[in-house]
């Protein structure tokens, strides 16, 4: 096992990245082809390249493609924000879902729907950014109250408490304003009903977030060393932390505005990626983009197929895999696969 691992780690990084991109591409094609309604690869091809519409491929173009594109970007965004959080907090259990970002965004989404029933996609996304920042701010705020900082598990406990609180807030808003159904459309519905119009607003933000994540990846590695080491190397740690915080808020907030609250992806993917490319964030972050996308495509596909034509919420699929993984990482003291 160790030898195999070493061999994997010795393969040049660009090759691994290219393989990941290819796998991601084919997963995307397969996930687009498969579904409750039988379609062929020819239909998928036509949906891409043919003008006009026909019953064969308009279902792909109008319903399935936007959904697949959405889950792909959501997977990438959550995986990368998880990777950044693990690096900047030096905490192997960090995850936007476990540390209050996505539940904060979710509560803000409920609030926005309650106050402005006809709120635009852009408005929802901005609400999600604010909510994600507030959720993370609460968790880290509690963290900084404690002298000597947080142990990984304590941070997760604070995250769990805040997440439950924010979930309760979202539920209360839903019940009081009688919009529970609207909200659960987001939270349980995953990417169902995503439209191209929604994507055209949210995806640019995710792309910008991913771009900055790549540009800052070297800084994340330095920050993941000891604080004194980072300072000694000439890193302005305060400024980098703020920049990274903005990046994870954008990524997690944008993801929630598409599919609702979603935990564990940001935890799992970076650990899996580390087993493939090592611990340097210059490699972890680009690899997490594609691994996160592949994982979410598959999870969404399983959710559609397991009980077709009924939908199993993708958040359940992710949780079923994520929880044991979380326990595994805790048990290994955070060094899963290392």
């Amino acid at each position: 096992m160790k030898k195999v691992k070493r061999e994997i780690q010795h393969t040049a990084f660009p090759i691994k990245l290219i393989i990941a991109i290819i796998v991601c591409f084919f997963t995307f094609l397969i996930a687009t082809k498969m579904g409750a309604k039988e379609t062929s690869f020819a239909d998928v091809f036509n949906a891409f390249f043919q003008k006009g519409s026909s019953p064969g491929y308009s279902i792909i173009r109008d319903i399935r493609l936007p959904r697949e594109v959405a889950v792909m970007f959501v997977g990438a965004a959550l995986a990368v924000s998880g990777a950044i959080m693990q690096g900047m907090t030096r905490n192997p259990l960090a995850d936007p879902g476990l540390l209050g970002l996505t539940s904060g965004a979710n509560a803000a989404l409920a609030f926005a729907l309650a106050m402005l029933p006809s709120v635009s996609t852009f408005g929802i996304m901005v609400a999600c950014f604010i909510g994600a920042a507030a959720g993370a701010g609460l968790v880290f705020g509690i963290g900084s109250m404690q002298k000597g900082g947080f142990t990984p598990v304590k941070l997760v406990l604070a995250g769990a408490a805040i997440s439950i609180f924010l979930q309760a807030v979202a539920d209360a808003i839903g019940l009081y304003f009688k919009i529970s159904k609207n909200i659960s459309l987001w939270t349980a519905g995953g990417a169902i009903g995503t439209t191209w119009q929604q994507l055209s607003i949210v995806i640019p933000f995710i792309l910008i977030g991913l771009l900055f994540a790549l540009l800052l990846s070297r800084q994340v590695t330095i920050l993941s060393l000891k604080e004194d080491v980072a300072t000694g190397l000439g890193q302005n740690t305060r400024r980098i932390r703020w920049l990274l915080f903005i990046v994870i808020v954008i990524l997690a907030g944008a993801a929630v505005s598409l599919v609702g609250n979603m935990a564990f992806i940001g935890l799992m993917i970076p650990h899996i990626v580390r087993a493939i490319v090592g611990v340097d964030y210059r490699h972890i972050i680009p690899m997490s983009i594609f691994t996160g996308a592949i994982f979410m495509l598959l999870a969404d596909l399983v959710g559609r197929m397991i009980h077709a034509p009924m939908e199993t919420p993708v958040v359940s699929i992710v949780a079923v895999l994520g929880l044991p993984f979380f326990l595994f990482v805790v048990r290994k003291g955070g060094s899963a696969f290392q």
Binding site: L225, K226, D228, V229, T231, G232, V279, D280, Q338
Partner: peptide
């Protein structure tokens, strides 16, 4: 350049 006291946190690099 600085070498801090026991800087060993580079785990997998």
């Amino acid at each position: 350049a600085i070498l801090p006291q026991s800087p060993d946190s580079a785990s997998g690099l």
